[in-house]
Simulated scan of single mutants.
Amino acid sequence: MTEHSVWRISLAHKIAPAFTANPEVEACFVFGSAALGISDQYSDLELAFIWSKLPSAEELQTTAQNVGVKGWEIEPHEEAKEAWLEQFYLYGMKVEAGHWARHAMDRIVTDVVECYDVSQNGLVFEKQASASNLQHAVILYGEDIIKQWQNRLSPYPEELAVAMVQKHLKFRPFDGQHILTERLEIPMLYENKCMIVRWLLNLLFGLNHIYHPGFKWTRYWAEEMSIKPPSFFNRLERVFQADAVSGVHELRQLVEETFELVEQCLPQVDLKQQRETFNRLNPRWELPVDDSTSRSQ
């Protein structure tokens, strides 16, 4: 665990009692980089509070004012808007505090482990991210409640792995990347690379039975994966840092190796159509030959 993580967790122990003093707060935990032990100098502190009944924004603002925070902001969080995301500064540290009603978190866990939820809000798998946060929580208060959810989240459902993989087997013909490279369409080429790498990560999170935590800290999560192409993260770096031709070649190899891993780990998933689509070539049109010019020569 990094020193930055240790310091942030110690700070969380100072902050939490001001909120857990409210009898409607049932649990509190640290999540994010501090809980994973990988915080650095740029990391803020992420706290989660579980309430018997979700408070209003005005109630949260009153609590924040009583604690003496600075720079307080709040916005609805999660697709169903049954949570708040609060930001403020305390003891000189930026804190992001998520607030959920207990019944809302119960439903999130149920959706993930019983309904195999793979829904997204933009790029974020919000329910799976909440599951990941619970799984890696540093518990400050309400241990029994958090442990109950953690027990429900283990083991990761095989059906969720299948759902994640099936959802993201949507790779288009890779020949388009070669065309963009030949045309030196650099912005579009790298936009497509980002999209393809995200799909690869989505597949690998499923194969490795890791609740999707989001796309931050990719190196850490790549190291946590036991099922992945060899030297996976180093090769991801080459995808973006090598010359365009070499990067595209590396990316194609990573996709093909990941397809092989899907076939090995989830033989019930049919990749025939996906492989055909991925390997399809775009048509090329040659200039017609001018017969009259040829005869005159």
Rank of each mutant, 00 (worst) to 15 (best):
83 A>N: 03
101 A>Q: 06
109 V>D: 07
94 K>Q: 13
86 E>Q: 11
138 V>G: 06
90 L>V: 04
149 W>F: 15
106 D>Q: 11
143 E>G: 09
115 C>H: 12
127 K>E: 10
81 K>E: 13
165 V>S: 06
82 E>D: 12
166 Q>K: 15
204 L>Y: 10
135 Q>I: 09
157 P>V: 03
191 E>M: 12
193 K>C: 07
92 G>F: 03
205 F>D: 03
85 L>C: 07
135 Q>L: 14
140 L>E: 11
176 G>D: 03
99 H>N: 09
170 K>A: 14
85 L>G: 00
106 D>V: 03
165 V>Q: 04
164 M>A: 12
128 Q>L: 06
121 N>I: 10
91 Y>P: 03
102 R>L: 12
189 L>S: 04
177 Q>G: 01
147 K>N: 11
190 Y>E: 13
177 Q>A: 07
83 A>M: 04
113 V>L: 06
137 A>F: 02
111 D>M: 13
167 K>L: 02
199 W>R: 15
97 A>M: 14
82 E>H: 09
162 V>Y: 08
181 T>M: 08
98 G>T: 12
91 Y>G: 00
157 P>F: 01
107 R>H: 15
114 E>S: 11
208 N>M: 05
190 Y>T: 11
196 I>R: 05
168 H>A: 05
117 D>S: 10
111 D>W: 09
161 A>H: 01
98 G>Y: 10
200 L>Q: 05
188 M>D: 14
109 V>F: 11
190 Y>C: 08
185 E>P: 00
176 G>H: 01
92 G>S: 10
209 H>F: 08
195 M>D: 15
108 I>K: 01
81 K>S: 10
128 Q>H: 04
112 V>W: 03
186 I>A: 11
131 A>G: 10
113 V>P: 03
208 N>P: 04
119 S>Y: 11
193 K>F: 14
205 F>P: 05
169 L>W: 04
112 V>T: 09
196 I>T: 07
113 V>E: 02
143 E>L: 13
170 K>S: 10
87 Q>C: 08
189 L>E: 02
